[in-house]
Design a protein around this nucleic acid. Structure first.
Length: 478
RNA sequence: UCCUGAGUAGCUCAGCCGGUUAGAGCAUCUGACUGUUAAUCAGAGGGUCGCUGGUUCGAGCCCAGCCUCAGGAGCCA
């Protein structure tokens, strides 16, 4: 057989009457005559027309939903309605049988919950094919964006000894026999005996190491797996997720916000251009899904419109303090519709408050800045008011926080004072503090949750559906 | 972790007030048909009612505990 042509290329073919070879998985076999074949290069199938009267019935029987086959034949303009081209099969080879009695997937709509349990096979559905092609484009676009701007892709460690970052519960990394770890004289586990000679864990953030790189390379970004051992059971959290963390020397918070907004728009634009068909499919999928919902719960904009709107409009920028004022004066607050009424300044915003600001009040992405220092991390730059820090959170409709970042505290004295106040052990972070001793400069960065971005662009509702094999409490299957 | 809801055929779901042999659609299999597009028509097979214990003459249904899933909350990206 000749070299195979991918289905995406076939469907974009300029000429017909040529002999081609296609390989893929059977999506449907109708009337013993029409095979819908898909190879993952596009959501569209190529129709294969089988001369069933002159084909071995034993072979025909093996063309079942899910089977892998190779087909050689002539590409012609389709005789039927509904597709541009079709392949008149001259030779069909079964590469891999697929017993319909055993195969869990069925040629019909299946629930996302069911497919989540069959994550090893769900790539073969239209929805997940589209999701993972979009995910791929977004990941590539992230690199394109930063590389075009001269950023250095920095690989920060996945195993660290630092548990002082305050970014959540960590997964321990150890070589010990858990039933019988070495103990010290006072009965505590003796990590000096462990592989690294100290207690280690999986990283919860590459930021602190990223800052070290930025203090020489100026502009860096990380893009790697991140681990949180939080017992989070939500549609927005994973125990293992991918995070993008740029860190830029000499940037202030405004530069930081510009960078984040430019980046988000760049990668969304890239996916819209590159995956127009997939996003159109996902848009239709969402419309279908929302038909089940009552009118008032449906979104005002389709997925496609929402993404375009995001590109066409500036993100709304305001301070935490301004947000609190808006929330205090808001109708739901006055009518006591909020579960957590907005009264004073200083407490963290609840999900319902963020959602109100983004989805009801501004109706577009919102960047909140200058949060009270008490509710933010130790490394954020303190404002002159003594109350707030130069933090920023980007809130997206339906997702909530997609980016969290800040200008960093570069003044050693201020940083140490804050670490003391918050009980962060300075001796463990001696290397971090060194950057403030030797050529410190203003700098800023942020963390972007990659899966939350994919969630937004695909219009999916659960973060477990936008990563191939999700890890979450009580689940590490596959 | 907390709150709410769910778990019945391969999938999606119905199952009355606790009552005798647990149903439907789709899928699958068999046959018919053959330019179909979620093909159509006829027939057939298919069940540890999440698990454990309890109440009862009798439990898919009531009670308790546990497991899993979904949505929301918290934590955050």
């Amino acid at each position: 057989m000749s070299q195979r042509t991918k289905i995406k290329a076939l469907l974009e073919s300029e000429q017909t009457g040529i002999d081609v070879t296609v390989k893929g998985w059977v999506r449907a076999f109708r009337q013993n005559r029409f095979i819908a074949l898909n190879d993952g290069s596009t959501n569209n199938n190529i129709q294969i027309v089988v001369d069933f009267e002159n084909t071995d019935p034993a072979l025909l029987k093996r063309i079942t939903f899910g089977a892998a086959i190779s087909v050689s034949g002539e590409l012609i303009p389709s005789l039927g309605q509904g597709q541009k081209f079709e392949v008149i099969a001259k030779e069909i080879e079964i590469l891999g049988d697929c017993d319909p009695e055993e195969f869990p997937l069925q040629p019909k709509r299946q629930t996302l919950e069911f497919l989540r349990e069959k994550a090893h096979l769900r790539f073969r559905t239209n929805t997940f094919g589209a999701i993972f092609r979009v995910r791929n484009s977004l990941a590539f676009a992230v690199h394109l964006f930063f590389q075009e701007r001269g950023f250095v892709y920095l690989h920060t460690p996945i195993i660290t000894a630092s548990d002082a970052e305050g970014a959540g519960e960590t997964f321990h990394v150890t070589n010990f026999d858990l039933a019988n770890p070495p103990k010290t004289e006072n009965g505590e586990i003796d990590f000096k005996e462990d592989f690294f000679g100290k207690a280690t864990n999986l990283t919860v953030s590459g930021q602190l190491e990223g800052e070290l790189g930025a203090m020489a390379l100026s502009d860096i970004y990380t893009f790697g797996p991140t681990f949180r051992a939080e017992n989070s059971n939500t549609t927005r959290h994973l125990a293992e997720f991918w995070m993008i963390e740029p860190e830029v020397a000499f940037n202030n918070l405004d530069d930081n916000m510009d960078l984040a907004e430019d980046m988000l728009k760049y990668v969304i634009k890239y996916a819209l251009d590159k995956n127009a068909e997939d996003i159109e499919f996902l848009t239709q999928r969402l419309l279908e899904e929302e038909k089940q919902k009552p009118q008032q719960e449906r979104s005002e904009m389709s997925l496609l419109e929402k993404l375009q709107f995001c590109l066409d409009n500036d993100f709304e920028r305001l301070t935490y303090t301004e947000a609190i004022e808006i929330l205090k004066e808001s109708t739901p607050n006055k009518k006591k519709k909020f579960q957590y009424p907005v009264e004073g300044w200083g407490t963290d915003l609840q999900s319902e408050h963020e959602r109100y600001l983004v989805e009801k009040h501004f109706k577009k992405p919102v960047i909140l800045t200058d949060y009270p220092k008490e509710i933010k991390a130790f490394y954020m730059r303190q404002n002159d008011d003594g109350q707030t820090v130069r933090a920023m959170d980007i809130l997206f409709p339906g997702i909530g926080e997609i980016v969290g970042g800040s200008q960093r505290e570069e003044r050693l004295e201020k940083l140490e004072q804050r670490m003391d106040e918050m009980g962060i052990p300075k001796d463990e972070l001696w290397w971090y503090l060194d950057t403030r001793r030797f050529g410190a400069c203003p700098h800023a960065g942020f963390g972007l949750g990659f899966e939350r971005l994919v969630l937004f662009v695909t219009g999916m509702g659960n973060i477990r559906d936008v990563i191939p094999f999700p890890r979450y409490p009580k689940n590490a299957e596959f």
